[in-house]
Each structure stands twice: as C-alpha cells, then as structure tokens.
Computed example of a mutant assay.
Amino acid sequence: MAHYQLFTEQKIPASVDEVWEFISSPANLKEITPDHMGFDITSKNLPQKMHPGMIISYKVSPLLGIKMTWVTEITQVQEKEFFVDEQRIGPYAMWHHQHRLIPLEEGGVLMQDIVTYQPPMGPLGAIANAVFIRKQLQGIFDYRFKAVEEKFGKYQVQEVMEM
C-alpha cells in the first residue's frame, strides 16, 4: 500500500514556552481545526498537557458531513521540542504526525509538522488521495497556519544593519 507525507512549517513570533503551552494542550485542538470538519473532542477528563500513552477521542466529519470517530494516541513527548500522535481508530489506514518546535536564533520558533499517512481502501485510497484527500489535508494545515498566525501574530524578519 502506498503511503504519503505532508510537511509544513511555520515561523511564529513567540517563545518556545508560549507555543508549547498552546500546542501541547488538547483543549486547543478545536481552535486550530476548520469548522467544516465538525471537530469535537469526546474524551472525558483530559489532562491539561499531553503525555505519552494519552488517548484522545474525537468526532470528525472529514467527508460529506458524515460523523466518524477518530482516536489518537500520544506516543512520544519531548517537552518543548516535539510530540507524536498516531491514529488508533479513524479515517486513515495509518496516521503518524510529528509536531516539532525549533527555536530560531533571530527570535521566535519554527514549528514543523510531518504527517505520514496511508489512505484507506488500498488502490481506491490512492486515487482518493490524488483527487481529494491530499488537498483536504493541505487545507486543514493552511487553516491551522492562519489560526496560529491570528493567535501569535505574523512572523517579521528583523533586519540587522551593520555600522
């Protein structure tokens, strides 16, 4: 079966502490997910911070408004550096998502996401990926880019003049 990767990055004008505080809280997932996804966390009593072994369940509507269950496990966490979530139940045959924060010398943070996924339904899934899955996934991350920009502001490159 074919698998695919989506790689995104965003420079954020905030400290690693501020960005980590935001992205490592499951409560903020809805804020960075497009409304049309019908995203609702269904897990009860979620902790404030992600930790290895944490299971998060959601309801999502990735296609035609049809609600489905998506369950992910946080498999790895390196405080203020990265975390990994993997799908246990959901719309993909396989989903592995690494969120990484890299402090920038010029200030701010580079946030990188690497999503490795495998659509369902074998060869039909490969066709669906070419037709709409990849575009939809890119659209979700485009939305997230804007939501993070609204939360933290646009990254401005500081020009240093030598004298």
Rank of each mutant, 00 (worst) to 15 (best):
E21H: 06
E73P: 02
I89H: 12
D35S: 13
G65D: 10
V115P: 01
K146S: 10
Y92H: 04
K154I: 09
M68H: 07
P62H: 03
K11P: 00
V19S: 00
L29D: 15
Q112F: 05
K154V: 10
P62D: 01
M111H: 05
Q10R: 14
M161N: 14
N129K: 07
V71I: 12
D85W: 02
E81K: 15
V84W: 02
A27N: 12
G139Y: 03
H3E: 13
S57Y: 03
F141N: 01
A27D: 13
F145I: 01
Q5A: 09
A147N: 04
K11M: 06
K67Q: 14
D17N: 14
H3P: 00
K11L: 12
W70C: 06
D17M: 07
V109L: 00
V19W: 01
K49V: 01
Q156S: 10
F82Q: 12
K44V: 15
P120E: 10
A93V: 07
K146L: 11
Q138V: 13
S24A: 13
E86A: 11
R144F: 00
P13V: 02
Q112I: 07
I56W: 05
R88K: 15
I140Y: 11
V160L: 15
E159N: 11
M111L: 12
H97V: 04
M68T: 15
Q76V: 15
D142M: 08
V19G: 00
I74D: 05
N28I: 05
T33F: 09
E106C: 04
D17L: 12
P119S: 09
L124Y: 03
P34E: 02
Q87P: 05
K146V: 13
V60A: 08
H36S: 14
L64W: 12
M111F: 09
T42F: 01
I133V: 12
Q87I: 04
Q158M: 11
G38R: 03
